[in-house]
Amino acid sequence: MNANAFDLGEGEPIITLRGIAKSYWRETLEIPVLQGIDLEIPSGAFVALMGPSGSGKTTLLNLVAGIDRPTGGTLEVCGHELNDLDDDELAAWRNAHVGFIFQNYNLVPVLTAFENVELALLLTGLGRRARRERVAEALDLVNLTDKQWNYPRQLSGGQEQRVAIARAIVTDPDLLVADEPTGALDAKNAEEVLGLMSRLNTEMGKTIVMVTHDPKAAHQARHQIHLEKGVLDRAVEVNR
């Protein structure tokens, strides 16, 4: 199996996986989760990662996002060979290149919507004014300017997820990773969030890798990749 087996469209690859493997050990027993994954995802792609529970979707996404390390193989993401970066460099790399969207939103409960979005900017060299402008822009994009002083507990699930999306894009990353972003939302809110992600992809050119179970969600993506027991099974172009 090689990268050519999956045609995910035109463009320079932003993600290149070569022989990626990931195992966990239970004492001396090796439990392989991902086995020899080769994959190229071009810049500007919107990929839905699908597959049965336990097939390794989250594991693969975490590797691509640089919050986990493979036990074999190499991966180049956003122009960096991730195996070459130490933990602190990897953290800085994530801050610059990756935006995260989680199933449970994962907003910081003691911070307002505004502050939650601003959080990732604290690590950049931006001054107060510049940060404020960027946060305002991001909140405007998710249409939550009027809720910016609300705390997460004062927001609905859909609103929380939109704040999380604002947080993910405020640093203007090249890559957005989302693990079941609609998993905790009702249909209406899910649709809204997916519409937003679509716009981020088409209008802002963000590359998106999204893990999902939900066929409706997967339908928003332009390509679907299926994972089966730790190996890539097939890639499908979504016809709309």
């Binding site: 933990d87 602190d88 953290a91 995260f100 910081v108 640093t171």
Partner: peptide, 9 residues
């Protein structure tokens, strides 16, 4: 989450 969005350990 802090670390995912780029805060070092």
């Amino acid at each position: 989450v802090f670390r995912a969005i780029g805060f070092s350990a």
